[in-house]
Design a protein around this nucleic acid. Structure first.
Lengths: 195, 195
DNA sequence: GGGAAAGCCTAATGCTATTAGGTATATGGT
DNA sequence: ACCATATACCTAATAGCATTAGGCTTTCCC
């Protein structure tokens, strides 16, 4: 009586759910196998090793995140789009903390080249359309936005804002404001800063 | 013949060195014990458990980072100070990757309250002195700067910039420029964003 | 039906954290 | 000086993990 046929996708999904439920670090092959009602060596027919499984979760998370961001920024521009982008990240981190954690680990080749990764970058770049930045500056601005959003969520999640006032929620809006201001006042590259 | 007397400090330092040499994840009690020429259960007389050891490394890293930042920003103001702050973080991440990794994990009570943590925040706030921000906005700006620097270094370290041009090094300067611009053009808080 | 391949299993190895309890060495009181 | 004690290390043992090797059972193709 096989409830489910045990595929790569079902294993990765179980791992992702487990990560959300009990933390990314608790995603062990044993635990995933238990959750699937199977013995852990059985997973090796479908997944190379633990690292490959975690990379699978990363790719899944990238896909899901790209999808959410895509919906969020559709039909918006400038500050509204920026805020939607940031909030999509934050919502995802809140609702799927384990999956989001998977985005924070060194990206393997496959994850780096995945459609999700490409889409997240492309969607971030799309937000820049409304801002007065030369095309050549888009790479840097994308990295800037990505760094800030990611860094903020990580510090918030790590409890770095928990011990000071005001609450992290207030800063979040101020930081989107600041990002918006930075994009509007984007500095011209000085000598030697041009690619 | 005891080469070293095995104290909490020596254990934490060995763990930190090991993290720098072979990666933060490879810091196991066994490996640290091996490095100290001792059996792993012996460590339990000095350290509660693995988690406490890792927290010790975090606190050590915070202390070291605060010290470097302190030296770097001394005698500087505005953009120069901001750049020195950012570069101090980046240099530390480069030179002591394992210790820096320790900063990226959920902060326990002790780490959160440590002098190093307080100092890093205070030094970041000090950089704001040259900028035209009201005192009430400093918290947000500190979080903004911290998020961006941390997020950038993390993505760079995870290889997130490795697959696109131009190199991460170029963006680094553009991002410090952008931070500087954001602080100069710091937006006034709208309704409901005041603490 | 025969055979091969899938897809799961058990068994085994070696690593890890952690606890329990032993032993020797230094220390402190008298 | 001597004994008691505490310190600081040790060995032994348990249990969980990743991973490999090899076996059994079902399914499906010819």
């Amino acid at each position: 009586m096989k409830a489910s046929p045990l595929t790569v996708a079902s294993i990765v999904e179980a791992a992702a759910d487990l990560a959300d439920a009990t933390g990314f670090d608790s995603v062990t092959l044993s635990a995933v196998a238990r959750r699937l009602g199977v013995r852990s060596p059985s997973l090796y027919s479908h997944v190379k090793d633990r690292d490959a499984l975690l990379e699978g979760v990363t790719i899944l998370a990238l896909t899901e995140l790209a999808s959410r961001v895509s919906v969020a920024v559709a039909g918006r521009a400038e500050r509204s789009a920026l805020e939607a982008l940031a909030d999509a990240h934050r919502d995802y981190a809140r609702e799927s903390p384990g999956r989001w954690e998977a985005l924070q680990r060194p990206a393997g080749e496959e994850a780096a080249r995945s459609a999700g990764a490409r889409d997240v970058v492309a969607l971030t770049a799309a937000v820049l359309r409304g801002y007065p930045l030369p095309e050549s500056e888009h790479v840097h601005a994308v990295r800037f936005i990505g760094s800030t959003i990611n860094g903020y969520l990580r510090i918030e999640r790590n409890g770095g804002f928990a011990h000071s006032r005001p609450s992290a929620a207030v800063s979040w809006h101020r930081i989107i404001d600041a990002l918006d201001a930075a994009l509007r006042a984007w500095p011209a590259p000085s000598e030697g800063e041009r690619p």
